[in-house]
Design a protein around this nucleic acid. Structure first.
Lengths: 384, 384
DNA sequence: TTGTACGCGTTATCAA
DNA sequence: TTGATAACGCGTACAA
């Protein structure tokens, strides 16, 4: 039950000795100096300095380079800071040193269900890794509209951001400004943008699908249905390539892979899977195994197929990509290629932090963290 | 292919006319003044002012209060700003005005699968609503460890944050400092914390479950299995209460509701559902309908039940809460109570923005946005 | 309508 | 080892 003096602070104090606020805080509002004063603007370094009987520069040193200040005074300063509940003002620090401690994560504007599944994990692992080094995490969606792009550019050009982790296929840009032009470290996560000189952390999309397809082939499958993502999408391209490579390595050809018509966007993955099933059941010569570019597409596919009276894996085996937890509890349990998203997030942070303040933060580094297929009931031998 | 002068900037320039950096930027590095200079620290107001032939204060006004400056000069200033690619420095602005434009969202440290499902949507809706008013979104996880709590407190006490949206059951605090003590607007989302004077945006957990249970009762069900969340959890308490109220209103008693043993945490929702199924099949007198506190629990429950040879909804009807998109594609499709998370996120932003800079930002406002039951195949009449 | 002058809270430079 | 002082870039009284 503490009086709120926030709206009647003296406008001007004797700034040579005490700021108006400090004067109010230290002398008028409260006599007990041991608690932080909660008038909306906490104690500053001058308050700590005064209480410890030193200069502000000494306080600054004691906090930033403890070894460069006498042990005794350092103790006094720490005590004073603690008693006052002092927390350094980030804006002042950022302004003075010319940089911030904020990392921006750029999420694709249209969060499709597949990526939705992994985003919380990604955010958590990234945040955890950043906190350890004192960095903050800011979030941005790059949607179609100019507003969201401008927002990101303001953040970057306004010095609010020290580096970026991007999950988006393209970097924001408007008329005059482009993130690509700013000497700001940017790491791409999930998408390989090393060609564009963005260090990238990806999984082995192509190889993982190839290995999974090899297992299908070993089981006797020789004709495949590929449930496609959006046209030109990195994951779609890579994962299809993996399937094709496995087929070709086994002496099969591209004609042994039937592709569903492309998903309009990943956003409608579940629904795209349904439509793929509708296409599947109309095929004259049916593949015996389906490979879906994402778990949600597989779920939509299986769901519709079962409703139409087909059986998985008896009529068709299904494998997909992402590793959504729910796959294990589907009926049948869905085999899926699990991405180690937490590791990937942590790796992206590492790559990014290594490049902070480096003259040349952009390079073609490409860090691949392998995914692994989890075998479940959705896969079996083809019917004879 | 532009030279990088970043590490050999003149240490000292004539500060009365040009800063060292500006001098470098304007005169030495490049003769073409029409493009933003990308030496890592963009053009400042003085650069814009010089180019437009006015004082910096006029530039400041032209940008913040366009109506208070002559149309002609304003045009010159805007042109100059655009040509230079000027973006205001956020740290300087924040320092000067004593506040930031950053909103912090506090996520529970242990993201259980259920909440995971809605987090991307929540983030997106919140972010979109914030951007419209020029605010940024920062993200924090409150985990068990002191580090993450301290991180949040540093953010708040360091003035980096203007307001919070919390999805967590408790506010971070360490020895001396507590978020609760800071006169910082905080809105609780999903959890009703209006008792603690945190304006809250929630759904009608209790009423929605009650209505759903009434429908089950109307179908003839009179004995229920409740798949519990963690002990004491707000959602668990409310949703169970809804079920109980419906039962009692129909002349049933608490003994007609069998509760599964509580989930260790929401984090293991899918697995908790599996364990609930194991308990269910061992009941002597079996309920004919199950109500799960979250979708993931329902999925785990149904999954296990089916594998044990039971049928949904023939042997037991199932209803759950959250509205995960995947429910529609389960087999059978799962009836679920859909939370309007996007609306709730937007509402939380509105409540928060209304309270910024208000003397008394804390109050018991409780905004309820109703959920609605979506009927699907997991519900039917009880077997005679 | 515009310009001058100052300070927000911090860190870095220099001198003591 | 410590202290005085000058910026960092911007917003805002106040004066012109």
């Amino acid at each position: 039950m503490q009086a709120n003096f926030g709206n009647r602070l003296p406008k001007i104090g004797d700034s040579r000795t005490l700021s108006g606020k400090s004067l109010n805080r230290m002398g008028i509002v409260k006599n007990n100096n041991d608690l932080p004063q909660l008038d909306g603007s906490g104690p500053t370094m001058v308050d700590v300095a005064r209480r410890a009987g030193v200069a502000t520069s000494t306080v600054s040193r004691a906090l930033a380079n403890p070894e460069r200040v006498n042990e005794k005074t350092r103790a006094r300063i720490n005590a004073a800071a603690h008693e006052l509940g002092y927390t350094p003002n980030a804006a002042a620090r950022n302004l003075r040193v010319g940089k911030s401690n904020t990392i921006l994560i750029i999420l694709p504007g249209s969060l499709h269900y597949g990526v939705s599944q992994v985003i919380p994990q990604v955010l958590q692992s990234i945040n955890q890794a950043l906190i350890r080094d004192g960095f903050n995490l800011m979030i941005a969606n790059v949607a179609r509209d100019a507003d969201s792009e401008r927002h990101i550019l303001d953040l970057a050009f306004g010095g609010s951001v020290r580096g970026c982790i991007s999950l988006s296929e393209q970097l924001p840009a408007d008329g005059g400004r482009s993130l690509a032009d700013l000497p700001l470290p940017i790491v791409s996560l999930l998408l390989d943008m090393s060609d564009a000189s963005l260090p990238s952390v990806v999984t082995n999309d192509r190889q993982a699908v190839k290995e999974a397809a090899e297992e299908l082939i070993a089981l006797g499958h020789s004709r495949f249905f590929y449930i496609s993502g959006p046209v030109g999408n990195y994951h779609d391209v890579e994962r299809y390539a993996g399937l094709l490579e496995a087929a070709q390595a086994a002496g099969l050809s591209e004609r042994d892979i039937v592709q569903s018509s492309p998903a309009a966007s990943f956003q409608v993955g579940l629904e795209a899977g349904v439509r793929a099933a509708d296409e599947f059941v109309q095929l004259a010569e049916k593949p015996t195994a389906a490979v879906a570019v994402s778990d949600d597409m597989a779920i939509g596919f299986v769901s519709r197929l079962q409703r139409l009276g087909w059986s998985v894996p008896d009529d068709v085996s299904v494998i997909s990509f992402d590793g959504s937890p729910a796959c294990e509890y589907y009926n049948p349990p869905l085999s899926t290629i699990v991405q180690p998203v937490a590791e990937m997030g942590a790796a992206a942070v590492r790559l990014l932090l290594e490049r902070l303040d480096k003259a040349d933060a952009r390079d073609g580094t490409r860090l691949v963290i392998p995914s692994r297929l989890v075998h479940r009931g959705s896969v079996g031998r083809p019917k004879p």
